[in-house]
Amino acid sequence: MATVATTSPALGSRERVRRWASGFKERETWVAYGFIFPWFIGFSVFIAGPMIASLVLSFTDYSVIQKTNWVGTQNYRDLIHDTHVATAMKNTLVFTLLSVPLHMIVALCLALILLRIGRAAGFFRTVFYLPSMTPPVAVAILYLLLFNGSTGIVNRVLGWFGISGPFWITDPLWVKPGLALMSSWALGGTMVIYLAALRGVPQQLYEAAAMDGASAWRRFRDVTLPMISPALLFTFIIQTIYGLTEFTRVYTAFFGAGTKTNQTEAALLYAVYLFRQSFEFFHFGYASALAWLLFVVIMIITFVQMRVSKRYVFYQGDQR
């Protein structure tokens, strides 16, 4: 990656600053700033500004209707004692812990299968990808119908094997596993990423491993997994963030006009609670505090994932 200017390390810092600043005398610099100008507007109006505003709001009781007061850290203290926050956070973590591994494992298996089937791969790749082209609202509707406890096809099929399926949608215990299964249906993106990574593994490595007498499992564990570990890490982080912010499918299936608060306790994900606090109850101050808590949680989890993965992720020399 080219850096701004190749300054020799011998230059003093003042000299560097001078050179840096002299760039602004160049016409090209201003043309460049012209090109990226739309981003400045977008960034300040839709990202930086709202971020700061949201942080400020989180220390007020702003609610559109009533007079706004500065409440200090009251919102943050309230959310510790809000049982819904605890429930929502727990639900979200359980959902993420169920859906992310399921999603990744199934996607990897499908990618491995596609890698082995030669010509037909194109066709089956399309088949496995199609659910990812389905709008989440539609996915949620299909979930309600297919996972229906008494009439749904899922339980019908389970019945063939002598299993009497649970009431996926109404039994609090089975809501999150059902949602995780539903969200693993749309794994096309992850699968395609794995497939690309698997194709990038040099064939010689397998040949060398086979020559050394490594079993298929050993080849998978010691060649395939390390070689595709950057793709695994990437999808792990992205899917975790998606899991923690999951909204559309769960909201569609369980909330909205027909919301009955006591029944939907088990499906109350954090993003859903945040949305309801914001745009159904208009507790903007409190919701801002909720949003920042979510942001901090996501940052911590992402940071830990990156930190821990350093030991396991292997980057090929030419990639980094």
Binding site: F43, I47, P50, M51, L57, I241, S278, A291, I298
Partner: peptide, 21 residues
């Protein structure tokens, strides 16, 4: 770098002020 880091920002953080705008 700033631009790339904005990819990490969840929509939830900015949605209320954006709505108010």
């Amino acid at each position: 770098g700033v631009l790339l880091s904005t990819m990490m920002l969840p929509q939830e953080v900015t949605m209320i002020p954006t709505y108010l705008i």
